[in-house]
């Protein structure tokens, strides 16, 4: 609970601060807080991934992009009334939607009685893997993971196409970035 409040405070900082360097560092802090919250929520695998990816790799990538571009944000010309209105209305509707949701940490909500319970029961007899997250990820939902891997592959190829140093085909580089 304290962590969640702290996270909200960091996000307010991210929204307010104009120096992009501070924004990126605050983003790293935010990711670490998020990883800790995930640990509290018993999602150890996810917490590990978030700590490595969100706080580590993506912060490094953001910083390298800041090195390539600029580190100051301009003051916006028009006042952000409309976005603020949209955001507040969306938030109000969503909060209204949460009133009927089951309270935090209850064991007999619908989501715990469907396929999740089956995975927990059958993982050892069917796959022999105690870590249910691994068995679901790699075995029960193998197609899903294959798709995700393909997405990563595609994103990697896209970044390489966009960022590869143009060595000999200078005139064709504009064609490449279209594709």
């Amino acid at each position: 609970m304290v962590l969640l409040t702290l996270m909200a405070a960091v996000v307010i900082g991210i929204v307010r601060v104009r120096n992009l360097f501070s924004v990126v560092v605050l983003g790293g802090i935010y990711s670490f807080l998020m990883a800790t919250v995930m640990l509290v929520l018993d999602a150890v695998d996810v917490a590990m991934t978030e700590a490595a990816v969100g706080a580590g790799v993506s912060t490094v990538l953001m910083l390298s992009v800041l090195y390539l571009t600029k580190t100051e944000e301009h003051v916006p010309q028009h006042t952000p009334i409309v976005p603020l209105f949209v955001a507040i209305v969306t938030g109000a509707v969503l909060v209204y939607g949460t009133i009927d949701k089951p309270a935090f940490g209850i064991a007999d909500t619908p989501m715990h009685n469907h396929v999740g319970a089956r995975y927990l029961e059958q993982s050892i007899p069917e796959t022999g893997v105690p870590n249910v997250v691994t068995s679901v990820l790699a075995s029960y939902r193998g197609f899903d993971t294959l798709g995700e891997t393909t997405v990563i592959f595609t994103a990697g190829i896209g970044v390489l196409l966009l960022m590869k140093r143009r060595s000999r085909k200078v005139d064709r580089s504009s064609d490449e970035e279209q594709g």
Partner: peptide, 17 residues
């Protein structure tokens, strides 16, 4: 529940990509 963990695990890595 392990199912959201799996979904989010892959979502994080796809997110950074």
């Amino acid at each position: 529940n392990p199912l959201p963990h799996v979904l989010i695990l892959t979502a994080i890595v796809v997110g950074v990509a």
